[in-house]
Each structure stands twice: as structure tokens, then as C-alpha cells.
Amino acid sequence: MYAILIFLHSVTRWLVLASLVYAIFNALRGWLSGRHFTRSDDKVRHITATIAHVQLAIGFVLYFNSPFVLYFRQHYHEAVKQLPYLFFGIIHIGMMTVAVVLITIGSSVAKRCKTDEQKFKTMAIWFIIALLIIFISIPWPFSPLAQRPFLRTF
């Protein structure tokens, strides 16, 4: 089960990134061009938030089933001194949760905005902030915090 969760979490990461980048591009284009917020734009907003929520749910299941995190919780005083354990035990889950909360807030606020410009602007700002947090919080192969491959396999 753990290997399947790791794989799903790794694949879904790319869906989150792709949908966020597309939603941000779409929001910036709409905001700067002054175009109308269409049903298609609303679907992009909704699908992006949904993918982020699915990823967070997979991440929480993975977090509570990870032997890495289990070691962190059982040996907290030693593990907190080692950056990879600290990263996966606290930093990764905390920052990703914050990022998804920001996506949720941005999506919800944009949905309720009165003007099309406000909808696009709200999405762009909240989603960009969330994307920056996500980029920092992903264990890239080149990350100084913790390294993982671009795609985890079985």
C-alpha cells in the first residue's frame, strides 16, 4: 500500500503543478486583458482546487502510513536534528497544508467576487502564493532540505 501511495502522490504532484500553472496563466491573461470570466474559467478554478485537495488527502494518508514519519514521531528528539526527518515530519506536511488552504481560500473568494477582473486577480494572487510555497516544499532532487526523484515508481 505504501508504494502505491508514494506513486500516486508523486504523479498527482505533477497534476497539481500543471493545473496551478495553467490556472495562474489563465487568471493573469484574463486579469490583464480585461476579458469576461467564463464558465470555462470557473471550471479551471474548481478543477485546480479539487486536484490540490486530492493531493492533500493522499499526502495525509501517506503521512500517517510512512515509516519515515513514524520514525520521526517515535524518535522526535533525535530525528528533529536531521533535516530530512524534520522536513518530512513537519515542514513538508505543514507547508503543503498551508498551500492547499491558500488555494481553497483563493478559489472560494474568487467564486464570490462581483466583477470578472476581481475574480481573475484574486485567483492569480492566491494561486501564485500557493505555488511558491509548493515549489519550496517539494523534495526536488536538487533541494537542500530533502531529495527525492522527479517521479517515484513502484
Rank of each mutant, 00 (worst) to 15 (best):
Y2V: 05
L8P: 10
H9C: 07
S10I: 05
S10G: 08
V11G: 00
R13T: 05
W14L: 02
W14T: 06
W14V: 01
L15Y: 14
V16K: 11
V16I: 10
L17A: 12
A18L: 15
L20A: 08
V21W: 08
Y22L: 06
A23Q: 06
A23L: 04
A23K: 09
F25H: 12
N26G: 00
R29I: 00
G30A: 02
W31I: 00
L32G: 01
G34E: 03
G34Q: 04
F37D: 10
R39S: 15
D42N: 08
K43W: 11
H46S: 09
T48S: 11
T48K: 11
A49D: 13
T50R: 04
I51H: 07
A52V: 01
A52G: 06
H53R: 12
Q55V: 01
L56P: 04
L56S: 03
F60L: 10
L62M: 04
L62G: 05
Y63H: 09
Y63T: 04
F64I: 03
F64C: 00
S66A: 08
Y71E: 09
F72A: 03
R73Q: 13
R73E: 08
H77I: 08
E78T: 11
K81S: 15
Q82W: 15
Q82H: 15
L83V: 12
Y85S: 07
Y85T: 04
F88A: 03
G89L: 04
I90A: 09
I91V: 15
I93G: 06
M96S: 05
T97M: 08
T97K: 07
T97W: 07
T97I: 06
V98Q: 11
A99K: 10
A99D: 07
V100R: 12
V100S: 11
L102F: 15
I103K: 12
I103Q: 07
T104V: 08
I105V: 14
I105N: 05
I105K: 07
S108E: 15
R112N: 13
R112I: 02
C113H: 12
T115I: 04
F120C: 02
T122V: 02
M123S: 03
M123V: 01
M123W: 04
A124R: 07
I125D: 00
F127P: 00
I128H: 02
I129V: 14
I129F: 09
L131W: 15
I133Q: 12
I133C: 05
I134M: 11
F135E: 14
I136R: 09
S137W: 12
I138H: 10
W140E: 06
P141I: 02
P141N: 03
F142D: 04
F142A: 05
F142Y: 11
P144W: 14
R148G: 04
